[in-house]
Amino acid sequence: MAIEKGRGATLNGDSRRFNLPQREADGDWLDAIGDIDGPLTRTRTQVTIEHPRTIVTRNQSPDIGFSQSINAYRGCEHGCIYCFARPSHAYHDLSPGLDFETKLFAKPDAAKLLRAELSKKNYVVASIAMGTNTDPYQPIEKDWGITRSILEIMVETRHPTYITTKSDRILRDIDLLADLARDGLVAVVLSVTSLDPAIARTLEPRAPHPLRRVEAIRQLAEAGIPVTASISPIIPAITDHEIEALVARVAQAGAREVTYIPVRLPNEVAPLFRAWLEAHYPDRAGKVMAIIRDLRGGRDNDPNFGTRMRGQGVWADLIRTRFLKARKRAGLGAERLILRTDLFRPPEGAQMRLF
């Protein structure tokens, strides 16, 4: 099996639900001709512009704490092998494997569409979450700046927003976030899955170094921006030994809360994760999957509301107990920050700005 440096998935996989045929990663065939044609070329990231009609997505899931979300991008260059959003790439006839992390979609009209949505007379203000599917601060945000343009609308309209990311690139927008935070209009969830750089390099290869994320927590907290640290996903026999150290470290950095979710392997993520285990942790691949199945009622994944976020059985209880003890020891709470909605003001129209 060819392992491409800097990428998470070891193959492109398939999408049986959408009849997408399995595709081989570029490295699989390039390895065979490399000696003839010279040095191999790594798979490069491609970005396609997408022009959606709307930008706000609604959901009614009972175990998700938001009803509205925005995703500036499809696909994610961070390449986290466990990413539950990978299967969504099949809607574009692309693989949840390497395609998901190399063939991305950007929505440059996002701010314009958001302005139109918030201008509707029947719009009911409710917190909008960003980063719920793919990371709003993945590497291409540096050039596209779509997330920042969305935040500028949030500042203008005093609209509440939650942001989830695993990138310290969020610090670039600390001016906008601090503005919102002064009125209780923003909360950030920053993910730190492991403090071990060797684990992070394979688990989430293009995400920033874990210590850079810890430093981002510190700087955001010092700027008065409420930060929750997420140590998700907890992967048995890979990262679970770090629970106590992770909780202590993010608490020291200034996180006001900490959360976790045991690893989830929905649909096409499961075979990709198995291939990743065989490539990077062959010595314990069977053990990891056995524990995951125990957590998930004998299956690779549990899609049921309520149990999908926490797991069940002995292993789930053990992880939960360790987490709760670590959180208590660190002096952290569990109360979700509720953002204000009473300050919202619809965006000004073009005519208004003339005066």
Rank of each mutant, 00 (worst) to 15 (best):
Ile3Arg: 02
Glu4Ile: 10
Glu4Met: 09
Ala9Leu: 02
Leu11Met: 01
Gly13His: 06
Pro21Met: 03
Ala25Gln: 01
Ala25Asn: 01
Trp29Asp: 05
Ala32Glu: 08
Asp37Cys: 10
Asp37Gln: 05
Leu40Tyr: 14
Ile49His: 03
His51Cys: 13
His51Tyr: 09
Arg58Gly: 12
Ser61Ile: 00
Pro62Ser: 02
Phe66Lys: 03
Tyr73Gln: 15
Arg74Ala: 07
His78Ile: 04
Gly79Lys: 03
Ala85Asp: 02
Tyr91Met: 04
Gly97Ile: 04
Asp99Ala: 14
Ala106Gln: 07
Ala111Leu: 06
Arg115Thr: 12
Ala116Val: 03
Ser119His: 13
Lys120Arg: 15
Lys120Ala: 08
Lys121Trp: 02
Val125Arg: 08
Ala126Trp: 14
Ala126Tyr: 13
Met130Asp: 11
Thr132Ile: 03
Asp135Gly: 11
Pro136Met: 03
Gly145Asn: 15
Ile146Ser: 14
Ile150Cys: 15
Ile150Tyr: 14
Glu152Gln: 13
Met154Ala: 07
Val155Gln: 09
Glu156Gln: 11
Thr157Ile: 08
Thr157Leu: 13
Thr157Phe: 07
Thr161Asn: 12
Tyr162Gly: 11
Ser167Trp: 05
Asp168Trp: 08
Ile170Trp: 14
Ile170Gln: 12
Asp179Cys: 02
Asp179Arg: 02
Gly184Leu: 04
Leu185Ser: 02
Leu185Arg: 12
Val189Cys: 15
Leu190Ser: 08
Val192Cys: 00
Asp196Met: 00
Asp196Leu: 13
Ala198Asp: 12
Leu203Lys: 06
Pro210Cys: 09
Leu211Gly: 03
Val214Ile: 15
Glu215Pro: 00
Val227Asn: 14
Thr228Tyr: 10
Ser230Val: 00
Ile234Asn: 14
Pro236Leu: 05
Ala237Cys: 07
Thr239Asn: 13
Glu242Ser: 03
Val247Cys: 01
Arg249Ser: 09
Gln252Val: 04
Ala253Gln: 03
Ala255Met: 14
Val258Ile: 06
Pro262Gly: 00
Val263Phe: 06
Leu265Asn: 04
Pro266Thr: 00
Asn267Ala: 10
Val269Leu: 04
Pro271Ala: 05
Leu272Cys: 10
Ala279Thr: 01
Arg284Ala: 12
Ala285His: 05
Ala285Tyr: 06
Gly286Pro: 04
Lys287Ser: 03
Lys287Cys: 00
Lys287Asp: 07
Met289Tyr: 06
Ile292Phe: 13
Arg296Val: 02
Gly297Lys: 09
Asp300Pro: 06
Pro303Tyr: 08
Pro303His: 12
Asn304Pro: 07
Arg310Ser: 11
Gly311Pro: 05
Ala316Lys: 07
Asp317Leu: 10
Leu318Thr: 01
Arg320Gln: 13
Thr321Trp: 05
Lys328Glu: 15
Ala330Tyr: 10
Gly333Cys: 07
Gly333Ile: 04
Ala334Ile: 01
Ala334Thr: 08
Ala334Arg: 09
Glu335Ile: 08
Arg340Ser: 13
Arg340Asp: 10
Leu343Lys: 10
Glu348Leu: 15
Glu348Gln: 09
Phe355Leu: 08
